[in-house]
């Protein structure tokens, strides 16, 4: 897959939030302000890159040779959660500025389905008879982690921008707050659906 196709797929036609509907919780929960949405997006991107970097070798060099691929959810969640915990402690010690802006979002995304989704995506396999081999290279896996993370950031920042406008409008009382946010997200998903038809 050439890089342009990959970028378009990750940002638009296979967007994690608006096309694959993964990671809806932070998408709706942390999209009130553009600043916090951007922080969440960066945290998700960072954790996605880390996830790809770690889960790919585990899947390729531990789970496949031992033929225990079915354990992937358990092992991935365990490893990702611990690593994010360590990353948080590392940031707290060595970069308090980054910690105060990202620190609160990191624990929120550890067990997010978007993170497990990216791990599942990049560890896709191709089997020829009995031989099972990985569909991506490690570099490709990390790159797609970064791109899908940016796709998530794009979606959440766009929604935050729309919400900050919508909140000021005179909306019928029963629709204020979350209902109108869900409707906004729905229209965004419909708009992104067009990309899947084109691609």
């Amino acid at each position: 897959m050439d890089i342009i196709t990959m970028i378009i797929a990750a940002l638009f036609s296979q967007n994690f939030v608006l096309v694959q509907f993964l990671g809806i919780c932070p998408f709706l929960g942390v999209s009130k302000k553009i600043d916090s949405a951007l922080g969440m997006g960066i945290a998700v991107t960072a954790v996605m890159v880390l996830t790809c970097l770690v889960t790919y070798p585990i899947y390729a060099y531990v789970l496949i040779p031992l033929k225990i691929q079915y354990l992937y959810i358990l092992v991935f969640i365990l490893v990702i959660a611990s690593l994010v915990q360590m990353l948080e402690m590392f940031l707290k010690k060595f970069s308090p500025g980054l910690y105060s802006s990202l620190g609160i979002y990191l624990p929120l995304v550890t067990t997010n389905c978007a993170i497990l989704g990216i791990a599942k995506t990049v560890t896709a396999t191709v089997s020829e008879g009995a031989i099972v081999s990985m569909a991506f290279s490690l570099g490709g896996a990390v790159l797609s982690g970064l791109l899908y993370g940016l796709g998530f950031t794009l979606a959440i920042v766009l929604l935050a921008g729309l919400r900050s406008k919508v909140d000021k409008l005179n909306i019928a009382k029963p629709l204020r707050g979350f209902p109108i946010t869900l409707i906004t997200a729905c229209f965004m998903a419909m708009a992104f659906y067009v990309f899947t038809l084109v691609a």
């Binding site: 531990v62 789970l63 031992l66 225990i68 354990l71 358990l74 092992v75 365990l78 490893v79 611990s82 690593l83 915990q85 360590m86 402690m89 590392f90 707290k92 010690k93 060595f94």
Partner: peptide, 25 residues
Amino acid sequence: LAFGITAGFALVMGVLILVVSHLCA
């Protein structure tokens, strides 16, 4: 095997967290 691998990962991660939390206290 499944039990051992999972427990092994848990153990390695647990020890790593312990070490990092001491290093980055």
